[in-house]
């Protein structure tokens, strides 16, 4: 267990830039852009004498009805989620390229020979990389996302208070703990959902003698094109749609958080604030686990990882 802890820590040391600084910097830029927007709005408003934005300041003077409170709460939750949304896109790219390099870079610079001179099992090494990519990196991203989200809320409340609008009491209608629980609670689902991609990308990383990205991306696409061609000229073997959606898509893009959300997940968004964020609730998110596709994907990912461990055992620096 101690060895495993240090193995994951090693991954963090090596990839501090992607795991920690990328979400921190993106969060910072997100805050800065919002601040710039607010300042621009203030300056523009002052120059043109537009104050209508804050004319109905008395709106907040009376006690809020339950409906208004729920609306305000939802709005603030959306603000908190928005930063995590941006960070999660970046996280997808970070994890994608982390896995592609994880078992390739040390073969290329031959530091593999140093790691292999230590009493470490290949199983533990590969597992530490899986955990670093699909548990540690998302965890750091969630922490950064939540901190950025809370900073955003404070930014807007402070701006409002400059206009004499006391919005501090509204903060109690937000659901920071629910937001944190929803974001952190999704990580196990993410780790399982990402398994096919994790396995495929690590397999290419462990196998390729050069250019793992090209192998990882071009091989599935080429297979898809061949399949389409066969379907065109001959008997229908397997569906193109099935291949692109359930194979190619899953082995390449499942490391992107939220890629489990299908069309169905968005049906509530337009149907009023009470259900607008349902897709992000753990209950509905984990609903995807009820489908056989989810578990077939996870098993395929684990099978790929077994291949990765075998390759890691026998590939050397040549």
């Amino acid at each position: 267990m101690k060895t495993f802890y240090w193995l994951v820590k090693r991954e963090f040391w090596e990839h501090r830039g992607g795991f920690l600084w990328a979400p921190v910097v993106i969060g910072g830029i997100f805050l800065l852009l919002n601040l710039m927007g607010v300042v621009a709005g203030e300056v523009f408003g002052a120059q043109h004498g537009i104050h209508s934005m804050f004319d109905n300041t008395h709106m907040l003077d009376h006690p809020l009805s339950a409906d208004e409170a729920a609306k305000a709460g939802m709005l603030m939750d959306v603000v908190m989620y928005s930063s995590s949304f941006i960070i999660s896109i970046v996280l997808g790219f970070v994890v994608f390229f982390y896995f592609l390099g994880a078992l390739y870079d040390d073969r290329r610079d031959r530091s593999l020979l140093f790691w292999k001179s230590l009493p470490l099992s290949d199983f533990a090494t590969v597992l530490s990389k899986v955990v670093a990519g699909t548990v540690l990196a998302p965890l750091i991203a969630v922490v950064c996302g939540v901190i950025t989200g809370i900073a955003m809320l404070l930014l807007y409340v402070i701006v409002l208070s400059f206009h004499g609008i006391g919005a501090w009491h509204l903060l109690v209608y937000a659901h920071p703990f629910r937001v944190i629980a929803n974001l952190a609670g999704i990580i196990p689902l993410y780790a399982l959902w990402a398994l096919p991609s994790t396995g495929w990308l690590l397999l290419c990383s462990a196998w390729a003698r050069s250019k793992p990205f090209l192998w990882a991306a071009i091989l599935p696409v080429a297979v898809g094109i061949m399949l389409g061609w066969f379907n065109l000229i001959g008997p229908h073997v397997v569906g193109n749609g099935w291949y692109w959606g359930d194979v190619c898509n899953r082995i390449l893009l499942s490391v992107f958080p939220g890629s489990w959300l299908g069309i169905g997940s968005y049906q509530y968004i337009g149907s009023g604030h009470a259900h607008a964020l349902d897709a992000l609730n753990l209950g509905s998110a984990y609903g995807v686990m009820g489908t056989p596709d989810f578990w077939i994907g996870a098993l395929a990912g684990i099978a790929l990882l077994a291949g990765v461990i075998w390759l890691r055992r026998w590939r050397d620096d040549s």
Partner: peptide
């Protein structure tokens, strides 16, 4: 795994990870 507790090796000089 067990063997490498008892064996050390230095393969050439530049194999320590650069980071």
């Amino acid at each position: 795994g067990k063997l490498m507790e008892q064996v050390c090796f230095i393969a050439d000089v530049a194999v320590l990870p650069r980071w």
